[in-house]
């Protein structure tokens, strides 16, 4: 969304529909934010301006992008708040963020993001700061709003449960590199990359009561000391010499999608 700090390195290409975002002029790119692409971030409290009412923060998107008059925009803010399931929205519009609970703040952020009905909603760990019941509610809300507005959601998360619930396709990344990509059903049922597999195995399960939680040995590398070759190689149970020398190319998975591993676990049957 063009929010990276000055001097950041951006590689590759970003396409929104058929438009190359990086080729756009800064002004056009700024207009894209909110209109075609929206962001909801993980910490809903710090993403809301403490000095302004929640309603105004929703209305201002309509006022700036569409030139809607303030009164009309505030009326629309009430509708958006009620759409995201906030009780008594006509009172809540005039409240300040600190008067909202964690789950309501996240709903308010979603209302802001939806104000202009964007094509793409980027949800950056939308549920990390929330407790389990609220988390489930927010995921259900996102799923229903996706249907209603016909938009796509790009969900960035550590939470495999949220992926299973919301996503169609999943891209597993490690240290900034794509490890495996494919349909959620296929990747979850038959992970071909050792990292994906280890990740799924480390989830708590209801059917393995009393067993120790599986964990991946070691810790994720800091961005400055990513290993040579495959970034996951120092922690990988299957790593060989070739993994230390070169990054594996992406190859087709047996059930569609791609996997980047020298020893893709085709023969493994994960159950």
């Amino acid at each position: 969304m063009g929010l990276q700090p000055k001097g950041a390195t951006v590689r590759g290409q970003i396409l929104l529909g058929k438009d190359d975002i990086q080729a756009m002029a800064p002004r056009a790119r700024r207009r894209l934010n909110g209109q075609r692409v929206s962001l909801i971030s993980q910490d809903a409290l710090s993403a809301l301006n403490p000095c302004t009412t929640v309603g105004y923060q929703i209305a201002e998107v309509l006022m700036v992008h569409r030139g809607v008059a303030k009164q009309e925009a505030m009326a629309r803010a009430v509708e958006l708040l009620s759409l995201t399931g906030i009780p008594a929205p006509s009172e809540r519009v005039n409240h300040y963020p600190h008067q909202f609970s964690g789950g309501m703040r996240q709903r308010a952020l979603i209302a802001i993001a939806l104000a202009l009905e964007p094509e793409l909603l980027i949800a950056d760990e939308p549920t990390t700061a929330l407790d389990a019941t609220i988390k489930a509610q927010i995921l259900t809300l996102l799923a229903s709003l996706r249907e209603r507005f016909g938009m796509s959601i790009l969900l960035i998360t550590h939470d495999m449960g949220a992926v299973a619930r919301l996503a169609d396709r999943v891209l597993v990344m490690y240290a900034g590199q794509a490890m495996e990509v494919g349909d959620v059903a296929s990747v979850f049922a038959r992970p071909e990359h050792p990292y994906t597999r280890a990740l799924l195995e480390s989830m708590p399960r209801l059917d393995k009561h009393g067993a120790l939680l599986e964990a991946i040995p070691g810790t994720p590398p800091s961005p400055s000391e990513v290993a040579h070759g495959c970034p996951f190689q120092p922690r990988c149970a299957f790593a060989g010499d070739i993994c230390r020398e070169q990054m594996p190319p992406a190859v087709e998975r047996s059930n569609g999608g791609h996997v980047a591993c020298h020893f893709a676990l085709r023969e493994m049957n994960y159950a």
């Binding site: 929010l3 962001l39 802001i112």
Partner: peptide
């Protein structure tokens, strides 16, 4: 983060600085 959030909403930079 609310300053970044204001930019993510597509607010012009002058408005981000002047208001937020």
């Amino acid at each position: 983060s609310y300053v970044m959030a204001a930019r993510a909403k597509g607010m012009p930079e002058a408005r981000v600085i002047g208001r937020t």
